[in-house]
Design a protein around this nucleic acid. Structure first.
Length: 262
DNA sequence: TTGTGTTTTATTGCCTCC
DNA sequence: GGAGGCAATAAAACACAA
């Protein structure tokens, strides 16, 4: 038996059959007769039972009223359901089903909205993280350079001390008082030089640590890093090697050197 | 006009609550 | 145990490109 899915196709079929019978003066085709039978059957069923009632779209007015009620509250109490059904000339069950389907649609949309929000947040965080990684790499490079510079300066200082000692030994004829005086002066000057180089390098390191501390504060949301655990005063405990490792990109920063129990 | 994808209305089965 | 909610699904209605 042929099925008719919409009223449009039914009416189109009826008019074509009417045309055909008028032109040919013949009786209805078997298809058309089947359709009439099925429509009669449907009418009979509608009268006898509401279950097989044909699916009908709600009018614009009905939908608007239902939407308005849904905005007020998306759950439907029995009294409101009966009232709405009466107002809109619908079965209470239809109103309940409409609310149920509307809640499902709302939930789907909400999930889509949540997904979009999360996606945007994720992209922002990824960008932040990438920037921090770049800064971290730059700082690690700077720390390495400072470490190399510090080593060079230490080696220079040792050489200059040895040279001064040789000069003092070759000057044996000079008076003991004078020898002692010169030696102490040389010693002091080399010590001052070494101290000075240390001060300048440690100042740079200090600035470096200060910068990285700020970045660590920004970055702690990624790694749960607690900047308050690391005071600036304590940074002098770092060896140069340790400071380089601390900012290494490949190696995650740890606080084991301070808190072995961690 | 027709095929196809989307939306809307309705059903079914399961679960929870009172 | 009945009422109501929800997820999954069916099926009708609709939109639209070819």
């Amino acid at each position: 038996m042929k099925r008719f899915h919409s009223s449009d196709s039914v009416s189109a079929f009826i008019s074509s059959e009417e045309d055909r019978t008028q032109k040919t003066n013949e009786g209805y085709s078997s298809d058309f007769q089947a359709m009439l039978n099925s429509l009669e059957e449907e009418d009979y069923n509608e009268e006898t039972s509401h279950v097989s009632e044909k699916k009908r779209r709600l009018t614009l007015h009905q939908v608007k009223a239902l939407e308005k009620n849904f905005e007020v509250d998306n759950k439907l109490e029995p009294e409101r359901k009966l009232k709405l059904a009466e107002e809109l000339c619908l079965q209470p069950r239809q109103v309940a089903i409409w609310f149920q389907n509307r809640r499902a649609r709302w939930k789907t949309k909400q999930l889509e909205r949540d997904y979009s929000t999360l996606k945007v947040n994720y992209e922002d965080l990824r960008l932040d993280y990438s920037n921090l990684e770049q800064k971290n790499e730059a700082l690690a490079q700077k720390a390495k350079e400072l470490k190399a510079k510090l080593r060079e300066e230490k080696v220079d200082c040792r050489h200059s001390v040895r040279d001064e000692c040789r000069i003092s030994e070759s000057d044996n004829n000079a008076s003991v008082h004078s020898q002692n005086h010169d030696f102490s002066e040389n010693k002091n000057s080399s010590a001052i030089t070494e101290d000075h180089s240390n001060v300048s390098s440690s100042n740079e390191l200090q600035n470096c640590f200060h910068l990285t501390d700020s970045i660590a504060i920004m970055g702690n949301r990624y790694q749960g890093y607690q900047p308050h655990l690391m005071k600036l005063e304590e940074q002098s405990l770092f060896g140069v090697e340790e400071s380089c490792n601390f900012f290494s990109v490949d190696q995650a920063p740890t606080l084991h050197c301070y808190f072995p129990g961690l």
